[in-house]
Simulated assay, not measured.
Amino acid sequence: MALKRMDNMGIVVEDLDAAIDFFLELGFAIEGRAMIEGEWAGRVTGLGDQQVEIAMMCTPDGHSRLELSHFLAPAIVADHSKDPVNALGYLRVMFTVDDIDETLERLSNRGAQLVGEVVQYQDTYRLCYIRGPEGLLIGLAQELG
Results as ranks from 00 to 15, higher is better:
L3N: 15
R5C: 07
D7K: 07
N8C: 10
N8F: 13
I11M: 10
V12Q: 04
V13S: 03
E14R: 14
L16H: 01
D17Q: 14
A18N: 02
A18T: 05
I20C: 01
I20M: 00
D21H: 05
L24E: 04
L24N: 07
L24H: 08
E25S: 10
E25Q: 09
L26T: 03
G27H: 02
E31D: 09
E31F: 03
R33F: 00
A34K: 00
E37P: 04
E39Y: 00
E39F: 01
E39Q: 13
E39K: 12
A41Y: 01
A41E: 07
G42C: 06
G46H: 13
Q50R: 10
E53R: 03
M56G: 15
M57D: 11
G62K: 03
H63I: 08
R65N: 05
R65A: 12
R65I: 09
E67D: 08
L68M: 05
F71S: 04
A73I: 03
A75W: 05
I76S: 14
V77T: 15
H80S: 06
D83L: 10
P84M: 06
P84S: 11
N86Q: 14
A87I: 10
G89M: 03
G89P: 10
Y90Q: 08
Y90L: 09
R92K: 04
M94S: 11
F95R: 10
V97C: 07
D98W: 01
D99M: 06
D101P: 13
D101Y: 12
D101I: 15
T103N: 02
L104D: 08
E105C: 11
E105K: 14
E105Y: 09
L107R: 05
L107E: 00
L107H: 02
L107P: 00
N109H: 13
N109Q: 11
R110M: 02
R110E: 06
A112R: 08
Q113W: 01
Q113T: 12
V115C: 14
G116D: 11
E117Y: 00
Q120N: 05
Y125I: 12
Y125K: 09
R126G: 01
R126V: 02
Y129D: 03
R131C: 14
E134Q: 15
L137K: 08
G139K: 11
L140M: 01
A141H: 12
Q142N: 04
Q142W: 00
E143H: 10
E143R: 04
